[in-house]
Amino acid sequence: MWLWFSKLGSPRWFYELSGKWLPWLYAAMVVFMAVGLTWALLFVPADYQQGETIRIMYVHVPVASISLACFPLMAVAGTITLVWRMKLADMVAKCVAPIGAWFSGLALLSGAIWGEPIWGVWWTWDARLTSMLIQFFLFIGVIALRSAIESQDAAAKACAILAIVGAINVPIIKYSVEWWNTLHQPASRISMDPMAPNPPEIWVPLLIMIAGVYLFFIITLLLRTRNEILVRERRSKWVQDLVRKG
């Protein structure tokens, strides 16, 4: 186990292994996305309340769920950076931050597009949208801190601390926003809960879409991390050999 752990920490090993995974991940993503999207857009029955707009859910929910996973992931990677000083963990942490910001932004955008037909406005201070917005700010903060610190080592540790503090804060933000929201706008709490008692023809394609978007997320993260590995290890022999081979 420990050997595996330290081996995983080797950027070169990770680079080579992830290179083998990528084609399979691509293939799986294409299958899931194709099935999920076709099913969701063409075959899912329109909602009796929301009509055709329910189909936006099949993009919004996967994107939002991934963006929620990014902060804990960044905090875990940060903890590994601080405790075991594993360089690979910091590369992952660095690459997750912009992806998390993008997915938060996409979740906000798709939420707005969904909100317009439902609520009649592009933006409302709904609990989920509000906490998503604050989470987006948190990601921006981590990215800003990373780019402000010149020393790579110091940036790694500083961002790790901020990620951990932020991850402790995310649930607090979520609950305080929900608590704040219940009194202000109870009317806006239309169920966006995918696990609500719905017939399988609604949630099965949703699960497929979630899997597809997760695969997309993993592929993006791997590509970014591989890129980061090459940049940071550019002086090492194996990277230079790789470049020479073309």
Partner: peptide, 20 residues
């Protein structure tokens, strides 16, 4: 060069206090 980075980092963390 700190500029506004402090506010960008800290303000989101303080939202729960403001809310409550």
């Amino acid at each position: 060069s700190r500029g506004l980075i402090l506010a960008v980092i800290v303000l989101p963390l303080t939202t729960p206090v403001l809310i409550v």
